[in-house]
């Protein structure tokens, strides 16, 4: 597996995408921290960019890469290696470079401006890394199930749109529709079900934005500050990685190439 992983890693790292990805995060973080003192607003600004770009890049690149390495996969599968080993290697080979370039891209400027190396930045790094794994999982599932490249990319894009925009729209519609009822608990449940929302709330809580959110903010803070809340959020993120990964693995194992 290690050798296979090394091949995939080398393949990915040779591409320009990972470097571009790193440079982008480095530039934007350095830019934001250079002109401000790393206060809450900067972190929130950075968060907006990070949580928009990471899911998009991960899901698009993951799907694209699976389609592009079809020949390679078919070739490898003729060798005496387990299919799950191939899948694992592919998955880590794609996700790890992206996670690393994101961590370094945001982490290095944060380290340079030592003042900004705060709980908020750490939360941002952790959730960003988790989101990369989540959306690579989803991407791999899409890439395996849909054989046509264009259709696969299309679906990947629609899924990204769903998680970043449509889901929130639906959430808003529901809160407005049921505004006569106490909606705090249902909204928390809905937030738990969307990895991007979950990550966003986690970062906003560390920069004390709950104070801005009135009663709802207090409820959210109480929930996510509790052991149960923390456990549920971590579990939710892990499930978002594990379930698409599991289904993807199963499809990969059963697929007739």
């Amino acid at each position: 597996m290690m050798r296979l992983l090394k091949y995939v890693l080398r393949d990915i790292s040779r591409g320009r995408w990972v470097l571009l990805y790193f440079l982008f995060f480095f530039a934007i973080t350095e830019g934001l921290l250079f002109f401000t003192a790393g206060e809450a607003k900067t972190i929130v600004g950075l968060m907006n960019v990070v949580f928009l770009l990471i899911p998009l890049a991960s899901i698009m690149f993951g799907t694209l890469h699976l389609h592009n390495s079809r020949d390679f996969i078919e070739l490898i599968l003729t060798q005496p290696v387990r299919r799950s080993t191939v899948f694992f290697s592919l998955y880590l080979g794609v996700s790890l470079p992206f996670v690393c370039s994101f961590l370094l891209g945001v982490g290095i400027p944060a380290l340079i401006h030592a003042a900004a190396f705060s709980p908020a930045i750490i939360t941002l790094l952790l959730t960003g890394a988790a989101l990369t794994f989540v959306f690579t999982s989803i991407a791999f599932y899409v890439g395996i199930v849909i054989n046509d490249k264009a259709a696969g990319m299309g679906l990947a894009f629609i899924l990204w749109l769903f998680f970043t925009v449509i889901y929130d729209g639906a959430l808003l519609a529901i809160t407005v529709m049921f505004q006569d009822y106490p909606m705090e608990q249902p909204t928390i449940a809905m937030v738990l079900l969307n990895p991007i929302d979950l990550a966003r709330i986690a970062v906003m809580l560390t920069v004390d934005y709950a104070a801005l959110m009135g009663y709802t903010g207090a409820v959210i803070q109480k929930f996510f500050g509790s052991g149960l809340g923390l456990m549920l959020s971590v579990t939710s993120l892990l499930l978002w990685i594990a379930i698409p990964f599991g289904i993807g693995l199963k499809s990969f194992n059963n697929k007739d190439w």
């Binding site: 907006n48 970043t164 959430l171 809160t175 505004q179 929302d197």
Partner: peptide, 20 residues
């Protein structure tokens, strides 16, 4: 304005949807 009328919608602060 929405937050004033439906306080629990504040949970969507800083989402792309709200910006749009």
């Amino acid at each position: 304005l929405l937050v004033e009328q439906v306080p629990s919608s504040v949970i969507l602060m800083h989402t792309p949807f709200v910006n749009i």
